[in-house]
Amino acid sequence: MELTIFYDGTCPLCLNEMQQLKRYDRLNRIGLEDINAADIKQRFPDLNVEQANTILHGLQADGTWLYGLDVTAKAWGLTGKHCWIKMLRLPVIKPVADKAYLAFARNRYRISYLLTGQKRCDTGRCNIK
């Protein structure tokens, strides 16, 4: 895997994006790991699950970590889709985009409810509208 993404599988919008990424990941370059998995700490001892619950974490094949929108930009870049996301990493846009991302991450359950009608995926699966 070129990138392993650690996401919140109880968040409807987060889960929806991960499903989209995998659908476009035709070369199987992206691995997905739900931070709520019972064995996540055993399989990834370097992952701080509490931090990963506040900001998206990505582990690259070379062992370096990416966070937040850097993970998103890298992942979509690997699929060749949504190339516009790279613009969010431009120096003049990055600080604002990162603050907006952190606000989204803090409020992801409320935002998910507004957009999907579901606040959380209690069973580990969401029915995305």
Rank of each mutant, 00 (worst) to 15 (best):
Y7S: 02
V96Q: 05
L102P: 00
G58Y: 00
M18S: 03
Y101Q: 06
G68A: 09
A52M: 02
V71A: 06
P91I: 09
I5S: 03
D34M: 08
L21Q: 02
R43V: 09
C121V: 06
K99F: 13
G124L: 07
K41F: 06
I128P: 09
L13W: 08
K81E: 14
S112N: 07
D62W: 02
F104C: 01
T64S: 13
S112F: 02
I93C: 00
A61K: 12
A103V: 06
A61W: 03
A38N: 12
E33T: 12
Q118S: 12
G124D: 06
G80R: 04
L21G: 01
R43N: 12
A97N: 05
I128V: 08
I35C: 02
D70R: 05
T123Y: 12
L66C: 09
F6H: 01
I40P: 01
G58L: 00
D70K: 08
R125E: 12
Q51E: 07
T123S: 14
D25I: 03
I85G: 01
N127E: 13
D70Y: 08
Y7Q: 03
L59Q: 01
A105Y: 06
T4V: 09
M87Q: 06
F6K: 00
R110L: 15
L59G: 04
G77W: 04
I40V: 15
L3S: 02
Q42S: 15
M87L: 14
A52D: 01
M87V: 15
L59E: 00
N127S: 14
G9K: 01
I111A: 09
A97R: 03
Q20I: 11
L13Q: 10
L115M: 11
N107V: 03
K94F: 04
Q20V: 11
R110F: 14
L32K: 04
Q60M: 11
N53E: 09
G80Y: 08
G80M: 05
D98R: 11
L21I: 10
